[in-house]
């Protein structure tokens, strides 16, 4: 009982120290993901993109997170007028 409680406290402490760091690193990763997504979708968003043929084949791979992404970018609804997700 005592040992279990101590372990729980230990885990809580470990989590206390890890959480903000994990958050910072995850945020850095997300910023790069967002940029990547922007590059992949730029043609569809109306930004001329010399690599359009190659971004097209990446579209399916960034698709699943598209809704969360455009909301994060401050766009309430899908910016692709011919593709709806919400």
């Amino acid at each position: 009982m005592m040992a279990r409680r101590l372990r729980a406290i230990g885990e809580g402490l470990a989590e206390y120290y890890r959480a903000p760091y994990r958050q910072t690193l995850a945020r850095e990763a997300r910023e790069r993901d967002d940029l990547f997504r922007l590059l992949v979708l730029s043609e569809a968003l109306g930004v001329p993109n010399p690599a359009a043929p190659y971004t097209l084949e990446l579209m399916p791979l960034v698709w699943d997170d598209f809704h969360a992404w455009h909301q994060r970018m401050g766009m309430e609804h899908s910016p692709l007028d011919h593709i709806r997700c919400c």
Binding site: G12, E15, Y16, A19, P20, Q23, R30
Partner: peptide, 15 residues
Amino acid sequence: GIDYVPTNRYVLWGH
């Protein structure tokens, strides 16, 4: 999982 994360209240208090 990044900004919006339900966090244990003692941990959150500490932060």
